[in-house]
Design a protein around this nucleic acid. Structure first.
Lengths: 196, 196
DNA sequence: GCAAAATTTGCACACTATGCAAGTTGAACG
DNA sequence: CGTTCAACTTGCATAGTGTGCAAATTTTGC
């Protein structure tokens, strides 16, 4: 796929997402139909389904690729691990922007609409798997199970930080620091006791 | 709600799930409609939707309550933590049965149908939150963030163990031991280095 | 500029899902 | 046991979702 077609596809995908978000903010999630989104985006409803599987997918937009910035943020880091994680998630998941207001709208929708919550979980899982592949690169000698568990532990802590950030007045960086500290505080509960 | 009505409701929910699983195994997921499931379960399609939101929910059945056995398995344990986790998940999530064959069917469907995968993730999340409430009970003085992170770490390790169990010839107990060992092996990677 | 490939669109239609009212069943009470 | 009421099921209508298919349009390569 070449220049104009590729660019056109990206722009249309983005147009659809913007139309979805705008209509949903105006009319409420349940009142917005795929037909309305399509018209607002300037395409036919039939074409809508060439881009997105359903309404909530349109609302969330496309899964971001791992950018060079996000890769570098994690791979080049020599520690501490949570600094790497913060920078990776900042560039990748938040798209290097402080999109707090937009994300707050989104969290509201999440809490009210199970379909969106489901898709959010799927997105999270997909991003966790992306991180997993990065970690496999960073630690080429670790077994697969360890990579998977490490990715899950790190990313779930990161998501908890983002959620905390959205609910309090703290900075994103401080939220990551706090979540990480909580994780480290949990470790003694996981370690073998003297009884073992 | 009293005796017969309550029992009737449970049985009908179960009938629907069984019908869904049976039809899907026979005809393939995409070929089975909510109408077909309803007829096979002996109810109208309209009633189907009084029980389940959609086809994949019917396939997965209802979310199990935390049984006394599962509670006891986690709350009474004095360690090691992964023994508690194993016993809790055995009683709660696997329903105290070795349902390996049925779960293998399910894993196949998971990998082929995004809607089922999404619902699986939602189920996982719901069970994680159930574990979280149990942990809050077991450790009443821990802050909320720690409880949340601890629940995520433990349950994700448990899910990884179950997935491993389904893919290898190992026993479920050994799979939990291995996954837990992998988790402990990850901890040094998370701890602060001397540079901090 | 032309031919081929890629993409959009209109259309038909099956399936999903919900509101509503009529019919049926279970529970409570005398 | 009979009656009344609440809970549940069902039929029906209908809007929205989602897909296959072929014609129309746009982009690409030469």
């Amino acid at each position: 796929m070449t220049g104009l077609r590729s660019r056109r596809r990206s722009e249309t995908a983005k147009d659809i997402q913007r139309a979805a978000l705008s209509l949903i903010q105006r009319d409420g999630y349940d009142a917005v139909t795929t037909d309305a989104i399509s018209r607002a985006a300037g395409i036919s409803q039939r074409t809508f389904f060439n881009y997105y599987a359903n309404k909530e997918s349109a609302l969330m937009g496309e899964l971001p690729e791992i950018s060079e910035q996000a890769r570098a943020a994690l791979l080049s880091g020599e520690g501490p691990a949570h600094r790497d994680l913060y920078r990776m998630m900042y560039f990748h998941t938040l798209g290097a922007m402080d999109k707090r207001e937009e994300l707050l709208v989104f969290v509201c929708l999440l809490n009210e609409h199970p379909q969106i919550f489901q898709l959010y979980l799927t997105r999270r899982e997909q991003i966790n798997r992306q991180l997993e592949s990065l970690l496999a690169e960073k630690f080429p000698d670790l077994p697969e199970m360890m990579i998977k568990i490490l990715a899950d532990v790190m990313l779930n802590t990161g998501w908890a930080a983002i959620r905390c950030w959205l609910q309090t007045d703290t900075t994103l960086e401080a939220a990551f620091d706090n979540a990480w500290a909580s994780l480290l505080d949990c470790l003694p509960l996981l370690l073998p006791t003297t009884q073992e």
